[in-house]
Nucleic acid binder design. Sequence first.
DNA 1: TGCTTACCACTTTTT
DNA 2: GTGGTAAGCA
Length: 778
Amino acid sequence: MITQPDFEAELRHLSIDPAPLGPLVVDLADADHFVVAGPGTGKTTALALRALKLILVDEVDPASILATTFTRRAAAEVRSRILQRADQIRQSLLAKGSLALKGRLSRIDFNRIRTGTLDSLSQEILTDYRPLGSYPPVVIDQYLGDALMLRAGLFDHGRFRRQELVDYAVRVLGTSRGLSPKKLSAFVREIHERALYDRTDLNAFAGAGIHAGIPIAVDAIEAYRAYLAASGQVDFALLEQRFLDDLRSGRLKKLQEEVQVVLVDEYQDTNFLQELIYFELAKGAKAKGGGITVVGDDDQALYRFRGATTSLFSAYPGRVHDAVGIQPQQVNLVENRRSTDDIVTWTNDFVRLDGEYHGVRVPNKPALIRRRQAAGRFPVLGMFRPTMQELAEDLTQLIDSVVNGSGFPIPRSKLVLQRSPQGGSAADVVMLSSSPLEEGESGPLLPLELRRRLGGLPHPIKVYNPRGRDIASVPEVGQLLGLILACVDPTQNGPNLIPNLPREALNVFTVWRQEAHHFQASNPAPQAPLPIAQFVAAWAARTPIRPRSRGRAPATWPRDAPLLQLVYNLLTWFPYFQSDLEGLAYLEAMNRTITTASNLGKFDACILGGPSVPPQVADKALVELYWNVFVPLALDFIEVDEDLLETLPRDRLGIYSIHQAKGLEFPLVIVDVGSSFKQRHWAHAFKRFPRDEGPSSRIEDQLRRFSPLGVPARQGRDRCFDDLIRQYFVAYSRPQDVLLLVGLDALRAPQNSVEHVALGWDRTGTWHWRGLGNLTMV
DNA sequence: TGCTTACCACTTTTT
DNA sequence: GTGGTAAGCA
């Protein structure tokens, strides 16, 4: 199509220097690479450009390229980078190319590249390539999985009441507090998933006499798996398992013959099962004269709790050699083009503080090189206050003066922190923490304190934190669901029909109904064609709103009215759910719950009524709605999926977990290193300076004895330290211009300070950054 | 140093 | 409710 020099010229034309990417944009399709890429070095771009090079220079068919990443947002990002760059290069070539080239170019359909998460691709492929006449697998999410484990695994034979099982859970989780059936179910399901990811022999695990509760847990897991198999459903772990089985059995031969190039991003978060899948795909690719390129950074591995095993990445060259017989070329991407010198230096220093941590990194990993052009020179900032409230207050002032005002002067310097004159906005500021939760058990947390204060400014700043709140506690959601309850169950009879309705759910329903009552009393717009009170009254009486035209017979109430339809009718009075980005995310969650409910129940998530329906039947449909829609929403079983939004909202300050922020970058990043650590308390030690191995590592240790991977080489507590270092490494490498650490004074007291890995403590208890003199305090 | 008393925070992250 | 932490006091 085009020559290699032409391609490289096009890259330079797009201000991309091909030199650091080296073999990735030079090698032919049959090359294999192991790319070790630090933060900000453009690894996603590197993958996108490799794909483009293969298509444009080597005329590889886009449909034969398979690119995977780990999160859905990252997958969308890979896709959009490929398409965007493809479009730019195509435009440029079309402008000067020959007629023949133009013809060939226009025939390339870049959209046919397969991109996605491994799970989404597995699902797509198993659906598209299934034998004629068979059903595609139905994939269930976390919430449904836990619910089915409870129903099919734990309630079956009363396993949830067996003392041995409860004892075992208490021993592993380290607490008996609030060990509800829901938590027990999640615990057993974690064993089930880990067992699949690590390919553990569960029978051996059950028979090893480790604990009397284990055989019961394994029985529950088998009952759960049998139930899913019988109903044609799979959870994420079973989906991957099935994908591997089908690859190995030759059922996906057609796919293997099509895929020539495999590109894997975020390889450090791969688990053993996924590794085997990639190796199968790689074998197919090699047979077709293609290859595999994996990209990752062991320092950014964050998903141990999902079975990710970092050593699979650091030992990749040897492992892929043994399994596939190839020798990938190692490529190090070390030029950080994201952050200022100060931030790159800080990040490099941080990751090298802990001597023990060196042992687990990729051998001879080079430090990041600062390559950002025209970078500013802000030092790393710190804001520490006696209480969370004072911290929130001062942080609000800082953000206000940066976003709304004329800037925030840095003490003892001439620097002023201010928003970019070219269209800077609140979206340039994000706050990262280990959890974006707005309320803890003991009251509001920093995100909520900030949300309130920023919202109360003369020029209010909105925040974007859809994961921070229980759906049930969002006022607008309460109003909407309260109205729905008033419509579908006006006499409030539903709860009486349900014998063991959880008390908490009932309380939430009462709150919703009150919120709806106040909302309705405020008589919100629009009043035409009819006010909301009239709409609700018509529903409550199951009487159609009379047609205005005279002479027409009055319409009768429908036999079954879909709940979803009712929701959309009510949205008339809720612009929040149509225009607000958080509102949209909550609406999607409600929508999803109702859709799931209609697949789950007998009545298709409808409200039955009208003269032809016997009251008992209508009651049954109502009870089903309570169980499948209102109870899960009230008890916060439903999770918001903000990945739907491909771009983050403008004009909002984002509050994200560090996990969510992985792969993203922002001008000003505030990292909450401990806004609720008032003293050296054991209860939160796991978040800053672990004292023991914790539940995740405990399960890992027990199961891995029966896995081909064998027991982990490092102690559980060491793995916890490694994980914390990685977490804050990711957080510290997000900012482009300014990094601001915030926390309580207890974290920086020269004596008896609260230990925290994020602030320069190593696991031996040495505080390398005693007193935090390396931060510029504001 | 040992005792009393007030105070603190209760596992997170996601396909 | 529990089990740990920290400060004050003798």
